[in-house]
């Protein structure tokens, strides 16, 4: 059986030079930007606030709520269950639908205050192998204890949506080892509604409990 080879990743933030000042221009931007921009704006909070905010909103939701003061729209945008989308294009369609509906029912289209425009950004992702590989569940959980949070992030978030593998890397490896039950449990975890350190300890506990029985 192939050992699990841990990779890590880092993102470079690209400024696209495109901005939005109201819902209409936000929608136009969401239609036009590359997929890596959608990924950036829906995942950035996870890494930047990974110890702080257990329910990280995405940038679109944050801007609608905090800058445009549109709480209902902000709630609609932030309650998106990203796990239900198999691709970034599906996620794009979701945001377009929510914004389209909001625009249809809006009786006015306020501009944001000057200087508080939404700036579209994107990311370039650099993936590199670490020296760590696990052949057993025990070794896997030991490595997971100390490996950088970026490595965890890569195998959970990037693997599924950014790299289009459709599943997180841990579940795929557990299944390859014949641990279907553990793979299914891992798949059930919602990584978007907990801090990354919380996620790290949940996975370690889950794997160790499974391994002990």
């Amino acid at each position: 059986m192939q050992p699990f080879a841990f990779n890590t990743k880092y993102d470079q933030t690209i400024l696209l030079g495109r901005k939005a000042k109201n819902l209409q221009t936000l929608l136009a931007g969401i239609r036009a930007v590359p997929e890596s921009s959608l990924y950036f704006h829906t995942h950035r909070f996870l890494l930047q606030h990974h110890f702080l905010s257990p329910e990280p909103p995405n940038d679109f939701a944050y801007w609608a709520t905090e800058v445009l003061n549109d709480d209902p729209l902000g709630e609609n945008l932030s309650s998106v269950d990203i796990l239900q989308f198999a691709s970034l294009e599906d996620l794009r369609k979701f945001f377009i639908t929510v914004l389209d509906e909001s625009l249809q029912h809006a009786d006015r289209l306020p501009d944001c205050p000057r200087g508080e425009e939404f700036h579209f950004m994107a990311c370039r992702t650099f993936v590199l192998p670490t020296p760590y590989a696990a052949e057993t569940l025990e070794a896997f959980s030991s490595i997971l204890e100390h490996i950088s949070i970026s490595a965890l992030y890569y195998h959970i978030f990037d693997a599924r949506l950014r790299l289009g593998r459709g599943d997180n890397d841990f579940s795929r490896w557990f299944a390859d080892l014949g641990h279907e039950e553990l793979a299914a449990k891992m798949r059930m975890l919602d990584p978007y509604t907990q801090t990354l350190e919380g996620l790290r300890s949940h996975i370690i506990t889950m794997v160790r409990d499974y391994d002990a029985h």
Partner: peptide, 20 residues
């Protein structure tokens, strides 16, 4: 430092996802 290292590396790679 991490951002600067990525910046320097990015000068040699054109892809959106770079496997180093």
């Amino acid at each position: 430092i991490k951002d600067y290292l990525l910046l320097f590396l990015s000068l040699y790679h054109a892809d959106d996802i770079v496997h180093l």
